[in-house]
């Protein structure tokens, strides 16, 4: 067994010894409870009872017991990246600007539409640049360590938690009387990775718009079918993979409210609040990001060889 799996096992066992995990069908209204509760989306921690409640769909049964995606990711990061990442002051200022995923909707009907999906966007970009990528927007992008040994690469929630764990998310706690918010200490703060992923998605979104996309949501694009292959080629020039997931007549009503061929969103024609135009795509230095991601892809094996060579030299 590797050092990594030993560490992850002992971290999980330590948690389980301290806290009893219970699977509950649903979380009750916390206002009815007269005790402290740390309110997570998928789990609640009740420190006075030494219990943790998880809801169906919010946990994974692993060889180390029941765990949430966040716990798996944090244990991995604790082992692989135990030191806080560093940045220059100017770099921090550039990274602390609010960023979120690209969104664009232009309600319309396309006679011949295609829905193009960027495959595993967060994970794919992280596989190119590494978790601890050193990014200073428009100044430099230095690849970090690729999380190739992450033990749950097929668990989308767990692998995406490697990114979200790097964001300063406030902890919500019900005190028994009111909800408070506070920021817990997080040594895995990694705004650079988040910023680079968002900037890459915005770069690709702007290509999609140039190809007449009428819908962009994070890593999904609806555009005239005759432009779909061009967009896939553009995405490939970033070292990323995309494919057509649906084709046919496209009816775009609003965000998360569309139909392409037989592919229909859950809220199609139901939630009229999800109707109307949205435009949130910001400008980034596309060429710098594209060239660097492609370099990372092309140089991956050479760099691994260099690192192995350094290790062998040190061993001798």
């Amino acid at each position: 067994m590797s050092e990594l799996s030993d560490y992850m096992r002992s971290a999980a066992l330590e948690r389980q010894e301290k806290t009893l995990t219970k699977v509950v069908d649903f979380f009750p209204p916390f206002t009815t409870m007269n005790e402290r509760i740390y309110l997570g989306v998928n789990s609640w921690s009740l420190p006075d009872r030494h219990e943790r409640w998880v809801r169906p769909g919010g946990y994974y049964v692993t060889e180390n017991g029941i765990q949430t995606a966040g716990e798996i990711a944090r244990d991995y990061l604790d082992f692989k990246f135990p030191k806080r990442l560093r940045a220059t002051r100017a770099q921090k200022d550039a990274l602390n600007i609010h960023r979120s995923a690209p969104l664009y909707v232009e309600p319309t009907i396309l006679e011949d539409a295609a829905y193009v999906d960027l495959k595993s966007a967060f994970w794919s970009i992280m596989q190119l640049v590494g978790w601890n990528v050193d990014y200073h927007p428009s100044k430099w992008i230095l690849r970090g360590t690729i999380p190739h040994d992450f033990p749950y690469p097929d668990n989308k929630a767990a692998r995406n938690s490697l990114v979200s764990c790097g964001l300063p998310t406030p902890l919500r706690m019900w005190t028994g009387k009111k909800v408070t918010r506070r920021f817990a200490t997080n040594i895995h703060i990694n705004m650079g990775l988040w910023a680079l992923i968002m900037d890459t998605l915005h770069a690709i979104a702007s290509h999609a718009r140039e190809l007449d996309a009428c819908y962009v949501h994070t890593d999904g694009y609806i555009l005239p079918r005759w432009n779909a292959e061009d967009l896939i080629d553009k995405i490939a020039s970033y070292g990323l993979h995309a494919s057509i997931k649906a084709r046919g007549v496209g009816t775009i009503i609003g965000m998360g409210n569309w139909k392409v061929g037989d592919n229909i969103t859950k809220n199609y024609m139901k939630q009229w609040s999800l109707m109307g135009g949205v435009d949130y795509i910001y400008q980034v230095q596309r060429e710098q990001i594209r060239d660097k991601l492609m370099d990372c892809k092309e140089n991956y094996h050479t760099l691994i060889a260099r690192r192995v060579s350094s290790s062998v030299r040190e061993y001798k």
Binding site: L142, L303, S310, R313
Partner: peptide, 20 residues
């Protein structure tokens, strides 16, 4: 050059290096 050294950084293209 030790590619595993915590004191090593890179790779930069020339513009990135100069900016850094």
């Amino acid at each position: 050059f030790d590619f595993n050294s915590p004191n090593g950084r890179g790779g930069y293209n020339q513009d990135e290096l100069i900016r850094f």
